[in-house]
C-alpha cells in the first residue's frame, strides 16, 4: 500500500457507507494534505463507486478545492464589498508586492500561498486578510507589511 492510500484509509472508511459523503471526504483529504492528490481521486472513485470525471467535476466546481500542493500557510485576502469600498485592492497589491506572487501561487520558499476570497464576514474591520484561521483587520499597506513580518517572526521564535 502506498503512502496516500495509507493516509486516506481512515477517511474512506469513515464515509464509505454514507450517502452523499463525497464532499466531506474531499474536505478531509484536503485538510490533511492541504490539497487533493490525484491518487486520492482514483482511490475514492474505486471505493465510492463514483467515476473519476464526476469527482473532478465536483472538485472543480467548488472554490475551496485545490489540486496543487500549497505553502505552509495560506493567506486569504478578502474581496468583499466592505473591503472593496475601504480600498481593499491596495492590500492585495501590497501582499502581492511583498510576496512577489500572484493569486493562486505559492512563494518560492513554500511558506505562503496567496488566495482571494469573496467575503470573510468581518466587514466592520475592513479591509481584512486571513492567515490560516486567523483574521487581521483594519489594515493599510504599512500594517499588512507588519502583519506578515510579525507572523513569520512569531513562528520562527
Amino acid at each position: 500500500m502506498n503512502k496516500i492510500e495509507e493516509g486516506i484509509k481512515p477517511i474512506v472508511k469513515k464515509y464509505k457507507e454514507e450517502v452523499g459523503a463525497l464532499i466531506p471526504a474531499l474536505q478531509e483529504i484536503q485538510e490533511k494534505y492541504k490539497y487533493i492528490p490525484k491518487e486520492s481521486i482514483e482511490i475514492l472513485s474505486k471505493e465510492f463507486h463514483i467515476p473519476v470525471p464526476r469527482i473532478n467535476g465536483v472538485i472543480t466546481f467548488y472554490a475551496q478545492f485545490r489540486t496543487e500542493p500549497v505553502g505552509k500557510h495560506i493567506i486569504r485576502v478578502c474581496h468583499g464589498t466592505a473591503c472593496f469600498v475601504n480600498n481593499g485592492d491596495s492590500i492585495m497589491d501590497t501582499v502581492k508586492e511583498i510576496l512577489n506572487i500572484e493569486v493562486g501561487e505559492t512563494t518560492e520558499d513554500r511558506y505562503y500561498t496567496l488566495e482571494q476570497v469573496a467575503c470573510l464576514g468581518c466587514c466592520s474591520l475592513a479591509p481584512v486578510i486571513m492567515i490560516d484561521d486567523r483574521v487581521y483587520g483594519k489594515l493599510d499597506s504599512t500594517k499588512v507589511k507588519n502583519v506578515l513580518k510579525k507572523f513569520k517572526e512569531v513562528e520562527n521564535d
Partner: peptide, 26 residues
C-alpha cells in the same frame, strides 16, 4: 453540520440540496 465548499450559488435552495447530496451545486 454540512460544510460548504466555497460556491455562492449554493445559497440558492435547490443548489444547496444538490451540494448536500454530494454533487456540483447547480
Amino acid at each position: 453540520l454540512k460544510k460548504g465548499a466555497g460556491a455562492f450559488v449554493c445559497g440558492e435552495e435547490t443548489a444547496l440540496m444538490r451540494s448536500i447530496e454530494g454533487n456540483r451545486g447547480m
